[in-house]
Simulated assay, not measured.
Amino acid sequence: MSDKSVPARPLIDLRSFTPARVALGRSGASVPTRPLLDFTLDHARARDAVHAVFETPRLVADLGALGLAVSEVRSRAVDRRDYLRRPDLGRQLDPDSAKALARDAAGPCQLALVIGDGLSAAAVHAHAVALVSRLLPLLAEGDAVALGHVVVASGARVALGDEIGAILGARMVVMLIGERPGLSAPDSLGAYLTFAPKPGRTDAERNCVSNIHKAGLSHDEAAFKIGWLIREGLAREVSGVALKDESADRVPRRIGTALPE
């Protein structure tokens, strides 16, 4: 039975709850001028995000201010056009980068962090450093997780983290990367976690924390979820479909604790 004392909210009020394009109105057979101009602007912002220059010196300096030593690598995509036309090249390290990374590897580590431009360098510039600054204290709590390497990767696709993690001997790799821009969020960052990374891992073997941006998941919320998945993944020695995000309901296991029979 409906409560007639509660007035029906006009459809236009839905716009205060979502950045999605709802209740745009109509002008003849088309939309009004303002929504059309807004669409054109958002489309331009999405295109700009895809082609934005990845400012690696700035990113390395900002990460250094957090006390992190950073290695720089690039994929086999020689430029942005190559990157967009050949996704496979963005999943493979440039040979010189692979050799340099192997020289930097000092032995196996628990965790490697890779920050790649992906399809939105704007997302990395806007959110990566702030997210890392909130993640580091969570990794240091209690049974601390040792962050062995931090790598900034240009021309990166998600799977590039698998090769990087394998070279560094990481038990787990976390890839922070710019997601494909949408018309409501051109600067959305994603985090992909893979246990026992190696070339050939599939998306089913990763966990993803996505939509990290001002109108989506906050830096604090994302850091909490990522930290929980790192600890639980290392404890269970799994990631992907075998590891569900139960961060809202459970405390992660102690790393190294065996699962019950």
Rank of each mutant, 00 (worst) to 15 (best):
I255L: 01
A242N: 11
L131T: 11
E72P: 06
V173H: 02
G148F: 10
P181D: 15
L147Q: 11
D13R: 07
D3N: 12
G28D: 08
R34K: 03
P186L: 04
A29V: 09
H43I: 05
A140I: 14
L136H: 06
V251S: 14
A61W: 05
Y83I: 02
E55F: 06
V150I: 06
H127S: 14
V241P: 00
K244Y: 03
V241M: 10
P186H: 13
D3S: 02
S16G: 04
E232Q: 12
G90Y: 14
A242P: 01
Q92Y: 05
S5W: 13
T56E: 13
A166V: 13
A222I: 05
C208Q: 10
S30W: 07
R201W: 10
I12T: 07
G240I: 05
R171G: 00
E55I: 11
V174D: 04
I12D: 10
V209G: 11
L24W: 00
R45P: 02
I226L: 08
D220C: 05
G67W: 08
V251F: 06
R26N: 01
A191I: 03
L189P: 00
P57I: 12
D249V: 10
V251G: 02
L66D: 07
P35F: 01
S120F: 13
S247Q: 00
L101D: 08
P7V: 14
A215V: 08
L119M: 15
L11V: 08
R86G: 07
G182T: 15
L243T: 00
T18H: 02
K198D: 11
D203K: 01
D88E: 15
I255E: 00
V238P: 00
D220G: 05
K244I: 15
L59W: 05
P199L: 08
L37Q: 09
R157F: 11
A65F: 07
R206E: 06
A258M: 02
S75A: 15
D245K: 03
A98H: 02
D249C: 10
L135C: 08
V22S: 07
R47S: 10
H219Y: 08
A215M: 12
A146E: 15
S75Q: 11
K4Q: 11
A46Q: 01
A204P: 03
P32C: 04
R15L: 04
G169L: 07
L63W: 06
A156Y: 07
K214D: 15
G240R: 09
S71F: 10
A215H: 03
I115S: 08
